[in-house]
Design a protein around this nucleic acid. Structure first.
Length: 107
DNA sequence: CCCATGACTGAAG
DNA sequence: TCTTCAGCCATGG
């Protein structure tokens, strides 16, 4: 039984709520979890999310809109391509008009 | 138990 | 504006 009350599952739960064509930051997720200072754990959890394909990790970037985790994807360009496929403008591993596509876990 | 690592963030110089 | 430092805390050896 899925107690899955672990930290990762919480992160996954939020990540799965990210709407198509939107992105959010590690800090935003961490804050929503009640651990605003645990942004690292969110990113760390994302690393483990590779085991869970239901988590759109490519929609999670750092607060600058920079695709800091792209190196963890299968290919260096995969993350950017995925975002661009969703209508997110990405250039040089950075999201253009980040605030426009930013999504808050609150919504 | 202690130490190292990490997809972050914010403050300080 | 850019660089550096420190805090954060879960997981693994």
């Amino acid at each position: 039984m899925p107690k899955e009350d672990n930290f990762f599952d919480k992160v996954y739960k939020i990540a799965r709520k990210i709407p198509y064509g939107r992105v959010t930051s590690y800090g935003a997720i961490a804050k929503h979890l009640g651990a605003a200072r645990s942004a690292r754990m969110v990113g760390w959890a994302m690393n483990a999310s590779h085991n869970d394909d239901t988590v759109p990790a490519h929609r999670v970037v750092n607060k600058q809109g920079l695709l800091t985790g792209k190196h963890h994807f299968d290919g260096i360009n995969l993350m950017q391509q995925l975002l661009e496929s969703e209508g997110v403008i990405v250039e040089n591993s950075k999201i253009i008009d980040f605030k426009a596509v930013f999504w808050s876990p609150n919504e």
